[in-house]
């Protein structure tokens, strides 16, 4: 399959089941909602070492937020429920509770309830106030700038992590420009996040390593400087490869996101140095969800 001169490889992205939740962070203005959300989703690029994967899903209009203030929705993914709950609590406590004017609400009502403000309330040292409003329990925690308002729980649901595609280009600037275009388009798709810095990964990994202590290492088959040194996947013209990783609430969300992203890359096409689209295919070692690129783009 070739789209605008870009070859779509007959391969598939491999993803795995995760647990996820969404939170809504509001603040006095969008600037501070973003600051809080960026802190909340910081150091959360990969479960390999961060314990979770997190990202800002989208901006919310004041009419969409529970307290009528500007806000953003963020999603957090982990390999299991316990890990997710722990990451959520520590991040909410250290990054949202501490952020001026912030409030924190559940972004998913269904699924298994996990603590959001349930334990953060103890920061109030006995001065915290519970309010049950429209069937939901909220906590008002007195803080130095006023009150931190948070919902008691949020819903944890099953999700899919690790959807991905690789952009193979003739140069590093061209690969990055294509990925930037893809991320801009993918940000408009609901229920997904791209957890890596700016949504783009330059250090895609393979499963395992020659070093026994590592369970992931550089994807040498796609490293352009190793073309003559390893069993490469790259043709001589390709000088740079970048990856976009997607976590989503369902495989359909990931498929939609991949399609939108690949379309944006292909719009730039061969004229802008984009040669191929491939995917992280780990031969079934990574997970049960397979996203065939050519099927998605058909």
């Amino acid at each position: 399959m070739i789209i605008n001169g870009v070859q779509i490889d007959p391969t598939f992205a491999e993803a795995f089941p995760m647990k996820a939740t969404r939170v809504i962070i509001t603040a006095q203005n969008l600037k501070w909602a973003y600051i809080s959300a960026q802190a909340f989703t910081g150091f959360a690029t990969s479960v390999i070492a961060c314990g979770c994967e997190a990202g800002i899903e989208r901006e919310l209009d004041p009419s969409e937020t529970p307290d009528g203030r500007p806000g953003v929705s963020a999603m957090i993914f982990a390999m299991g429920g316990k890990g997710l709950a722990k990451q959520l609590e520590t991040r909410a406590g250290q990054c949202v509770l501490t952020s001026p004017t912030s409030a924190l609400f559940a972004g998913i009502d269904e699924g298994t309830p996990i603590a959001l403000g349930k334990n953060l309330r103890y920061f109030g040292d006995g001065f915290q106030i519970s309010k049950r409003i429209a069937g939901k329990r909220y906590w008002r925690v007195p803080v130095m700038d006023g009150e931190f308002l948070t919902e008691e729980t949020t819903g944890m649901v099953s999700a899919v992590g690790g959807g991905n595609f690789l952009v193979l280009a003739e140069s590093q600037p061209q690969a990055l420009a294509a990925c930037e275009a893809a991320i801009e388009a993918m940000k408009k798709v609901p229920n997904v996040i791209m957890p890596f810095p700016g949504g783009v990964v330059r250090s895609g990994s393979k499963v395992g390593s020659k070093y026994k202590t590592l369970n992931a290492s550089t994807n040498d088959a796609f490293c352009p400087t190793l073309k003559g040194q390893t069993k490469t996947e790259l043709s001589p013209q390709i000088e740079s490869v970048m990856e976009i990783v997607i976590d989503g609430l369902s495989d359909a969300d990931i498929k939609q996101s991949m399609r939108v992203g690949i379309e944006a890359v292909c719009q730039l096409g061969a004229a802008n140095g984009i040669r191929r689209i491939s995917a992280g295919n780990y031969g079934g070692k990574l997970g049960p969800f397979l996203f065939h690129l050519q099927e998605i783009m058909a």
Binding site: P66, D67, G68, A103, K131, I133, A134, Y138, R140, G146, E147, L149
Partner: peptide, 13 residues
């Protein structure tokens, strides 16, 4: 005197 964040939620309910 304060502007309390929970009031808009309460009134909306």
């Amino acid at each position: 005197s304060h502007t309390l964040g929970f009031l808009p939620l309460l009134l909306k309910s």
